[in-house]
Amino acid sequence: MHFETKEDIDSPIAEIFAAITDFETFERSALRRGVEVNRKGNAAEGLETLAWDVGFQFRGSPRQMALTVARSQPPNALDLAAKGNGMEGAMSVELLALSPRRTRMIVRFDLAPKSLAARLLVQSLKLARNKIDRRFRLRVAEFARMTEERLAQGSQPA
């Protein structure tokens, strides 16, 4: 399954890259939603050293996933890879500077089943593809809007 969307954000590319690599904020948000997150590695040693073991409930079953930073190309790209429960996933965030104060963020997500049980799960997700695609686009748009607002507030004189 493949999902893709893009959003234009009124902030410089370096600030947007800093926002998409603010993993502490993402970890806290996941913990608030009941996701177990265990980080491996240290961002000070480079983003490619970061990995997470993640546990969560999905459709009534416990799921485990290993998430790693596959590629980091500041300030233009970040790729994450996920493996677990017979599935492999990849998320790519590409940033393009449209102007010094405007950035286009392109987010791609691919999900590939590697077992029969995972194929059945993906097939059920395909039946709800329109709803999932709409939620994916809304989440990316919400992240872009919140990031834009947070960065605009931070640049206001005190």
Rank of each mutant, 00 (worst) to 15 (best):
R137K: 15
F143I: 00
E48A: 06
T25L: 12
M91G: 14
E7P: 05
S29T: 05
L151H: 14
A144E: 00
L95N: 04
R139F: 01
R59W: 03
S115R: 11
A152L: 14
E7V: 12
R102Y: 03
S124E: 14
A14V: 15
N42G: 12
E27N: 14
A97G: 07
K114G: 04
P12E: 07
A51F: 12
M105Q: 04
V140T: 02
V54A: 01
R150A: 02
S115K: 11
A43M: 08
A14D: 15
D133Y: 00
D79W: 14
R59S: 07
K40P: 01
F136A: 15
P62W: 07
K131E: 05
F136S: 13
R102S: 08
R28L: 15
G34E: 04
G46H: 06
A30H: 07
R102Q: 06
I132G: 00
D8I: 10
R129S: 13
P12Y: 12
N85G: 10
D53H: 07
S11R: 03
L127G: 14
P113G: 03
T21V: 03
R119L: 11
I16S: 02
R135E: 02
T68K: 01
D110W: 12
L125F: 12
L121S: 02
L125E: 05
S99R: 06
T103M: 09
A141T: 07
V35L: 04
R39F: 10
S29L: 06
K114F: 06
T68N: 00
R137P: 00
F17S: 13
D79V: 15
A18D: 13
T25Y: 11
T103F: 04
R71K: 14
V140N: 01
R134S: 12
P157H: 07
Q73Y: 03
V69R: 02
A152R: 15
L151S: 09
F23P: 06
R150I: 00
E27V: 10
V37M: 15
D22P: 04
K114L: 11
R71W: 12
S115D: 14
A70G: 09
F56W: 01
A19G: 05
E15L: 08
L67R: 01
S92W: 00
